[in-house]
């Protein structure tokens, strides 16, 4: 690994296998997730990058027949968040997620951002108002919505809705934020604003992002894992991956020879 790595480890996948029923979707994945850095997962469709991301908040537990093997350890307490002894709800309270398509609740802008706080038992109006404002500011949405916090979230544009979903995920002060192709449903201008936002967030949050857009990975991330057929082919410093990858397969993919 290159010399630029001085960050501490926030999480680490260790020999992770994942099964959808009998189908082995992830095969022996081991990569680190550095604290307050952006790690990108790239690879062609069906390579398992979203599946891997969704292990981090135990989303797979919602559907029957899914099975994990191996570990994802989360620091500072070094707990294996995939362990059956760990409540998936506890994991989701520590690690939040932004989905592929904006999925705001059909509630007001305010209530959307406040929901994660309400789940944590925060119901005091003044506290909620303050935290919602901070989250919306962090998501670069505050100036656009401050006069209509009680309007329905559905009245926002697609890009604004996605930033609202980011604010919702930010409000709970997560230890890691998972982004699952957050710009794939957005136009180029909205995409640019989300990327700008991620750049601002990376000083304060640990981010793991799945993207099928290699330029996006190159622009926003510090580290990149290239996945193919359920395996990590190469994990490295983003600069290294995009300028001088170790593996031929990685080079073929990033130069557009397949995928």
């Amino acid at each position: 690994m290159s010399a630029s790595v001085q960050a501490t480890l926030k999480a680490e996948a260790k020999d992770l296998n994942f099964y959808y029923g009998d189908f082995k979707a992830l095969k022996g994945i081991s990569i680190p997730v550095h604290d307050k850095k952006i790690t990108a997962l790239i690879g062609p469709s069906g390579c398992g990058k979203s599946t891997f991301l969704r292990c981090f908040n135990r989303m797979h537990d919602l559907y029957p027949g899914n099975r994990y093997e191996g570990e994802i350890t989360l620091n500072p307490d070094n707990v294996n968040i995939l362990s059956p002894k760990v409540d998936p709800i506890e994991v989701r309270m520590r690690i939040s997620m932004v989905f592929q398509k904006p999925n705001p609740f059909p509630k007001s802008i305010f209530e959307n951002v406040a929901y994660g706080l309400r789940v944590r038992g925060i119901n005091k109006r003044s506290v909620l108002e303050e935290k919602v404002e901070v989250a919306l500011q962090n998501a670069a949405l505050w100036n656009e919505v401050k006069d209509r916090l009680h309007d329905l979230a559905f009245n926002l544009s697609g890009g604004q809705q996605q930033r609202l979903c980011i604010a919702r995920a930010l409000a709970i002060d997560p230890e890691i934020m998972l982004f699952d192709e957050p710009t794939s449903a957005l136009d180029p201008i909205a995409t640019a604003s989300i990327e700008e936002l991620m750049d601002e967030l990376k000083d304060r949050f640990t981010i793991l992002i799945v993207t099928h857009n290699m330029q996006q990975a190159a622009r926003v991330s510090d580290f990149t894992a290239f996945m193919y057929l359920g395996e990590v082919v190469e994990y490295n410093d983003t600069k290294k991956i995009f300028t001088n990858p170790d593996k031929q397969q990685t080079e073929d993919y990033i130069t557009g020879r397949f995928g």
């Binding site: 908040n57 989303m59 919602l62 709800i89 506890e90 989701r92 309270m93 939040s96 997620m97 989905f99 398509k101 999925n103 705001p104 609740f105 929901y115 994660g116 309400r118 789940v119 944590r120 979903c165 919702r168 995920a169 709970i172």
Partner: peptide, 23 residues
Amino acid sequence: VPGSIREAAYALGATRWQMVSDH
């Protein structure tokens, strides 16, 4: 009610009952 709304609630740490009753 689309699955994405259910996942959004779960991803914020909601229990099943919170997901049902709040959303």
